[in-house]
Measured scan of single mutants.
Amino acid sequence: MIINNLKLIREKKKISQSELAALLEVSRQTINGIEKNKYNPSLQLALKIAYYLNTPLEDIFQWQ
């Protein structure tokens, strides 16, 4: 199972779901689904999230 800290990191950086979704060219619902662990992002999307949040990938997504 993958645990993610996306919501915590996104809120710490004061970025809304809508703003992050626009940067990543995905829907706000996609961001919401990832934050709620409804599904895991593709590797490409995970890397883009880490890039736009300027945060190491392993700080956002962790195996458990």
Rank of each mutant, 00 (worst) to 15 (best):
L43D: 05
S16A: 07
Y39F: 14
E35P: 01
K48S: 08
N54I: 05
Y39Q: 11
I34R: 00
L53Y: 01
Q64A: 14
F61N: 01
L23G: 12
I49H: 00
K7W: 05
K14G: 15
K38F: 13
A22I: 11
V26E: 04
E19P: 02
A22S: 12
I15V: 11
K14R: 14
L45A: 03
L47F: 09
I9M: 07
S27C: 05
E25F: 08
N40H: 12
A22C: 08
K36Y: 08
L8Q: 15
R28G: 09
Q29H: 13
I15M: 15
Y52P: 00
W63H: 05
I3M: 15
S16N: 08
N32V: 15
Y52R: 05
L53M: 07
I3V: 14
I31L: 13
A46I: 04
T55N: 04
I49L: 07
T30S: 06
Y51I: 08
P56Y: 06
N32P: 03
Q17W: 03
N40K: 11
N4I: 03
E58S: 13
L20Y: 01
Y52M: 10
Q62W: 06
S27Q: 07
I34P: 00
K48G: 07
L57H: 03
N40C: 11
L45H: 03
S27G: 09
G33T: 09
A21F: 00
E11S: 10
V26C: 07
N54T: 09
K13E: 08
I31C: 01
L8S: 13
Y39N: 08
K14N: 15
L6Y: 00
Y52A: 14
N32I: 15
E58F: 09
N40I: 15
S18Q: 14
Y39M: 09
K48N: 07
N5C: 05
I2S: 09
G33M: 15
L43A: 07
W63M: 05
F61C: 02
K12H: 12
Q62K: 11
P41Q: 02
G33D: 15
I31H: 00
K36I: 13
N54S: 14
N5K: 06
K14I: 05
V26R: 04
R28Q: 15
Q62I: 10
E58G: 13
I60E: 01
T30F: 12
T55D: 03
E35I: 02
L23F: 13
L57V: 12
N54G: 11
Q44W: 11
Q17L: 12
S16R: 08
A21M: 03
E58D: 14
M1N: 06
R28V: 15
S16L: 07
A50H: 03
I3F: 10
Y52G: 05
I34S: 00
I31G: 00
L45S: 03
K12W: 11
P56S: 08
Q17K: 09
K12M: 14
Q44Y: 10
Q64C: 08
S18T: 13
P56M: 06
Y51E: 11
Q17D: 05
K48E: 09
L8T: 15
R28A: 14
L57A: 04
Y39A: 10
P41H: 02
N5V: 03
E11F: 06
L23I: 14
E11P: 02
V26K: 03
K14H: 15
E25G: 12
P41S: 03
E19S: 10
L24Y: 00
M1E: 05
S18P: 07
S16Y: 04
G33C: 11
L23R: 10
L24R: 01
I2M: 11
Q62P: 07
N40G: 15
K36E: 15
A22D: 12
L6C: 05
I60N: 00
Q17P: 06
L24A: 11
R10S: 02
D59E: 14
I31P: 01
L20H: 00
N4C: 04
K14W: 06
P41C: 06
K12R: 13
E58M: 07
K7N: 06
L23P: 03
L23N: 11
S16G: 09
E11A: 09
K38R: 09
R28M: 15
N4G: 04
T30N: 05
N32E: 15
K13A: 12
K36V: 12
S42N: 11
N5Q: 05
K36T: 15
T30L: 15
Y52K: 06
L43E: 07
K38I: 14
I15T: 04
L23V: 12
N32S: 13
S18I: 14
M1V: 10
E19Q: 14
V26N: 02
P41F: 04
I15H: 04
S42P: 10
N54V: 07
Y52I: 14
Y51S: 10
T55W: 05
L47P: 01
N32A: 14
I31Y: 04
I9Y: 10
F61M: 03
K14C: 09
I60T: 02
Q64L: 07
Q62T: 09
N32L: 13
L43I: 11
L57E: 02
A21P: 00
I49Y: 01
L57I: 12
L8H: 14
L43H: 10
I2T: 11
K13D: 04
L23M: 14
K12C: 08
K7Y: 06
Q62Y: 07
L47R: 13
L47K: 11
L43Q: 09
N54W: 08
A21C: 05
E11N: 10
N32D: 15
M1P: 13
Q64N: 12
N5H: 07
Q29A: 14
E58R: 10
S27L: 03
S16V: 04
Q29N: 14
K36W: 08
N40E: 15
Q44A: 15
L24G: 03
E25H: 15
I60D: 00
N5S: 05
A21Y: 02
L53A: 02
I15P: 00
L20M: 08
P41L: 07
I60R: 00
I3E: 08
N54D: 14
G33L: 14
Q44F: 10
K7T: 11
L6D: 00
N4V: 03
T55L: 07
G33P: 01
N37W: 11
L57S: 03
I31R: 00
E25R: 14
E35S: 01
L8G: 11
Q64F: 09
L53P: 00
E35D: 02
F61A: 01
T55P: 00
K48P: 01
E35Y: 01
N4D: 02
K36D: 14
R10M: 08
V26L: 06
N54F: 05
I31D: 00
E35T: 01
D59A: 11
K7D: 04
Q44E: 14
N4R: 02
K38C: 10
I3Q: 09
I49N: 00
E25S: 12
L23H: 13
E11H: 11
L8P: 11
G33H: 15
T55Y: 07
Y52Q: 09
K36G: 11
L24N: 03
D59K: 11
S27V: 03
I31A: 02
